[in-house]
C-alpha cells in the first residue's frame, strides 16, 4: 500500500539551473499538494507529460527524495522516518538507475540479494524463477556491458526484483524496450498484481496505461488533475479514450496555469 498525503516537492534553483530553465524564480515546485493511494493487487498509473512531476513523485515514494511538505507511507512506514524499512519492501525501477557494467547479471543478482538480507537458498530460488521468466539464463554470466539495451533493462528488472518486494515502483516500464521484451515486462507486472503486490507505474503512453492500469492519476504541472479507474476518468471527462481525456485535461490546465502566472 502506498499513501501519498499532500506531497509537495520544491527545489531550490541554482544560478545554472535558472539559466537552463530560463527563469528568474529561486525555486521550482515540481510536485504541488499531491495525494494518492495505491492499493495492493492494483496497478496504479501516474500519467502526464515530461516534466509534470511523475518521476519526482516516484523518487519521493522510493525514499530517494524527501518531501518538502506532506508525507508518504509505504506499507505503513514513513518514507523519511523509516526509510530503511521502506527500502526493504520496495523495488524502484527507472532508466536513471543503472547496473555496474563491469559485473555479470548473476553476480549482481547475488550481491543485491545479500544486500537485501536474503539467505543463499532464497537467492538461488528467486534467481531460477526470475531468470526463467525473463529468459535470462543464456545471459546470466555475461557482463552488463556486453548486453543489448533491452537486455540491460531486463537485467535491471530482474536484479531489482530479487527480494520479491511488496511494492513495485516502475518509471516508464517499457521505455527503450523492443516489443517482445515490453510484452514480457507488462505481463510480469500483471503477474505481480495477481500476487497481490502494489504496483505503481508512470507513463506518457496512454494506450499502454489503458491496457495495464486499474487506476490512473493524471499529473500536469505538478498537480494531480484527476484520479480514478479508467471508466471513471472517461466518464468525468466525457471522452472516448485516455488519450482524448489527457489532451482535454491538458488544454484546460494549460489555460488555468497561464491565468495563474
Amino acid at each position: 500500500m502506498i499513501e501519498i498525503n499532500g506531497l509537495t516537492k520544491i527545489y531550490k534553483l541554482s544560478a545554472k539551473k535558472k539559466k537552463e530553465l530560463k527563469t528568474n524564480k529561486d525555486v521550482k515546485t515540481a510536485v504541488n499538494d499531491l495525494s494518492l493511494t495505491a492499493k495492493p493487487g492494483e496497478i496504479t498509473g501516474l500519467l502526464g507529460p515530461n516534466g509534470a512531476g511523475k518521476t519526482t513523485t516516484m523518487r519521493c515514494v522510493a525514499t530517494l527524495l524527501s518531501p518538502t511538505k506532506g508525507d508518504i507511507k509505504v506499507c505503513g512506514y514513513d518514507t523519511v522516518k523509516d526509510a530503511q524499512k521502506v527500502r526493504d519492501s520496495i523495488c524502484f525501477l527507472t532508466n536513471e538507475i543503472k547496473l555496474d557494467e563491469h559485473f555479470t547479471v548473476d553476480y549482481l543478482f547475488t550481491f543485491f540479494g545479500r544486500l537485501k538480507n536474503l539467505d543463499e537458498k532464497t537467492i538461488e530460488a528467486r534467481k531460477k524463477e526470475l531468470f526463467d521468466t525473463f529468459n535470462m539464463n543464456d545471459f546470466k554470466n555475461k557482463k552488463i556491458e556486453e548486453l543489448s539495451t533491452g537486455m540491460k533493462q531486463k537485467a535491471s528488472i530482474v536484479v531489482n526484483l530479487v527480494n520479491d518486494p511488496e511494492v513495485v515502483i516502475f518509471d516508464e516500464p517499457t521505455s527503450g524496450l523492443d516489443i517482445v521484451t515490453a510484452r514480457v515486462v507488462l505481463d510480469y507486472l500483471k503477474k505481480l498484481r495477481a500476487e497481490g503486490k502494489t504496483v505503481i507505474v508512470s507513463t506518457h503512453i496512454m494506450p499502454e496505461a489503458e491496457k495495464l492500469c486499474d487506476k490512473v492519476a493524471m499529473i500536469i504541472g505538478g498537480r494531480k488533475v484527476i484520479e480514478g479507474t479508467i471508466p471513471e476518468v472517461l466518464e468525468k471527462t466525457q471522452t472516448a479514450d485516455l488519450e482524448d481525456a489527457f489532451f482535454k485535461l491538458f488544454m484546460e490546465n494549460k489555460e488555468s496555469e497561464k491565468e495563474e502566472e
Binding site: 522510493a62 525514499t63 530517494l64 530503511q84 524499512k85 527500502r87 526493504d88 520496495i90 524502484f92 536513471e96 538507475i97 543503472k98 547496473l99 555496474d100 557494467e101 543485491f112 544486500l115 537485501k116 538480507n117 536484479v159 531489482n160
Partner: peptide, 11 residues
C-alpha cells in the same frame, strides 16, 4: 553512471 543509486535504494 547512475550505478551508485542502485545501492542507495537498497535497504
Amino acid at each position: 553512471r547512475g550505478t551508485l543509486s542502485s545501492m542507495l535504494i537498497s535497504p
